[in-house]
């Protein structure tokens, strides 16, 4: 679906047509990997803020509307529908969102300024690190000179070695080696829960 058509659809859904608000589900699969498959071309002014994107921390939740204050102090209202894909360490549901969570959101900006979200990632971080120490269920990481505590979450944390398929075995991780960590930040701490750790196996 082209961008304009998608925007019109979401507008009609969000602005209260009698039909159920189905959001992005009507546009196809909502698996994160496939929720972005619409044919589209985008070019903005080099330093323009993407109007269909938001970053910040949740300052309030009213029903399915997230009130978010951007790190640049921009205020966003982000509407989640039954079709919004939500990630918080793993694919999850809207009720996992909490005041204080950081987020990135991608969707379509409505005429009233609301961002109708296709996808929301709560507390997600992508850290380029070095492994300082490995303890039981914890990786101690150096991230540009800052210490990060990475928690291994049983049943969720996976490792990808040299681009091979993800596995739960973390035994090939080595102290002193670099590692990229996709995880969920624990707000206002230096701790993250690890979703995926990318490493080069020895």
């Amino acid at each position: 679906m082209e961008s304009l058509g998608r925007r019109k659809f979401l507008t009609s859904a969000v602005l209260g047509s009698a039909t159920a608000v189905v959001g992005a589900t009507a546009l196809g699969s909502l698996a994160p990997e496939t929720a972005f498959a619409q044919e589209d071309n985008w070019m903005l002014e080099p330093d323009a803020i993407d109007p269909d994107f938001a970053e910040g921390r949740i300052t309030g939740i009213k029903g399915t509307m997230l009130m978010v204050t951007g790190s640049d102090r921009t205020f966003h209202r982000i509407l989640l529908t039954s079709g919004t894909s939500v990630w918080k360490l793993r694919n999850t549901t809207f009720d996992e969102a909490e005041v204080g969570d950081g987020l990135y959101a991608r969707g379509a900006r409505m005429p009233d300024g609301v961002l109708a979200a296709d996808a929301v990632w709560l507390n997600i971080v992508n850290l380029q690190t070095h492994i300082v120490a490995i303890n039981r269920d914890v990786l101690h990481l150096d991230h540009h000179g800052h210490r990060i505590v990475g928690h291994v979450v049983t049943g969720t944390t996976a490792a990808v070695y040299n681009g091979t398929p993800a596995i739960s075995d973390l035994s090939l991780l080595q102290v002193g080696k670099h590692a990229q960590v996709i995880g969920a930040w624990r707000p206002d701490t230096n701790e993250v829960d690890i979703a995926t750790v990318y490493a080069a196996a020895a």
Partner: peptide, 12 residues
Amino acid sequence: AAFTRLGSLSAG
């Protein structure tokens, strides 16, 4: 912002 126009952040 750019990455999410192409894929999911959780994909890494």
